[in-house]
C-alpha cells in the first residue's frame, strides 16, 4: 500500500492551526513553570524544615512519576477538589508543575555557576547584599538559565502532545481529527511528526546559539 499525500495537503492549514495551541500552552506553562521554579528554590533554602521537606518531596514526586500520570491526576483531581477548570488551563497547570521542578534545578545551577570570588569582590567594595543580588548575581543568572529554559520550552512543545488525551485541541488532537475524516493515519502522523520536528529543530538551533553567547562572557 502506497502513501498518498494529497489528502493530507488539504488538511495542512488545519494542522498548522493546531500548532498555535501547542505553542500557546507551552509558552504559558514555561512562564508559570518559571514562577513555580522560583518558589521551589526559595522553599529549598527556607529556614523552616517543614517547607524544605515539602519542596524536596514535591521534586522527588514530580521527577519520579510520569508526566502523563501527572496530567491525568491534575485533570481528574481538580474537579474532585471542587475546582472546575477547563482543559487548556488544566494542561497548563500540569505542565508547569512538572517544569517547575526542573526549572528550579536550572536556577540552582545558574546560581552555583557564578564564581564566589565575584561576590567577595562586591562585598569588599562595600556593596550590600540587596545590591549584590540586583547588580551582580541576577543579571548573570538570567543569562545562564536562558539556554536550559529554551530547552525546557522545546520539551514542553513535545509534552503538549500528551494533552490530546484530555481532549485539548492542539496539534496531535487535530491530527487525530484529520485521521477521523480522511482515514489516512500513516500520512497524517508522518506529517505531524514533521511539523513537530521543524519547531523543535529550529528551537534547538536557537538554544545552541544562546549557549554560545552565554559562554562568551564566562572566563
Amino acid at each position: 500500500m502506497t502513501l498518498e499525500w494529497k489528502h493530507v495537503t488539504h488538511a495542512l492549514p488545519f494542522l498548522l492551526e493546531g500548532t498555535l495551541a501547542t505553542v500557546a500552552v507551552s509558552l504559558l506553562a514555561l512562564g508559570l513553570g518559571l514562577l513555580v521554579g522560583i518558589f521551589v528554590m526559595l522553599g529549598r533554602r527556607s529556614r523552616f524544615k517543614a517547607l524544605r521537606a515539602l519542596t524536596v518531596a514535591y521534586m522527588s514526586i514530580v521527577r519520579g512519576t510520569p508526566l502523563f500520570i501527572q496530567i491525568l491526576i491534575v485533570y481528574y483531581a481538580l474537579p474532585a477538589l471542587g475546582l472546575d477548570i477547563p482543559r487548556f488551563e488544566s494542561g497548563v497547570i500540569a505542565l508547569s508543575l512538572n517544569s517547575g521542578a526542573y526549572i528550579s534545578e536550572m536556577i540552582r545551577g545558574g546560581l552555583m555557576a557564578i564564581p564566589k570570588g565575584q561576590l567577595d569582590a562586591a562585598k569588599a567594595c562595600g556593596m550590600r547584599s540587596g545590591l549584590i543580588w540586583r547588580r551582580i548575581t541576577l543579571p548573570q543568572v538570567l543569562v545562564l538559565i536562558l539556554p536550559p529554559l529554551t530547552m525546557e520550552f522545546t520539551g514542553l512543545l513535545k509534552s503538549s502532545a500528551l494533552l490530546s488525551v484530555i481532549g485539548l485541541v492542539e496539534l496531535t488532537r487535530r491530527a487525530q481529527q484529520v485521521i477521523g475524516e480522511t482515514l489516512r493515519s500513516p500520512e497524517v502522523w508522518l506529517t505531524t511528526a514533521a511539523l513537530y520536528f521543524v519547531m523543535c529543530f529550529a528551537l534547538g538551533a536557537v538554544t545552541r546559539r544562546l549557549e554560545k553567547s552565554a559562554a562568551e562572557y564566562r572566563l
Binding site: 522545546t154 513535545k158 502522523w189
Partner: peptide, 17 residues
C-alpha cells in the same frame, strides 16, 4: 529526528505507518 519529536507521535508513527 527522535529528539525533536514527541514520544507519543513516535509511537503513533510506528504503530500506524
Amino acid at each position: 529526528i527522535v529528539r525533536d519529536t514527541p514520544f507519543l507521535v513516535q509511537v503513533f508513527v510506528i504503530y500506524f505507518v
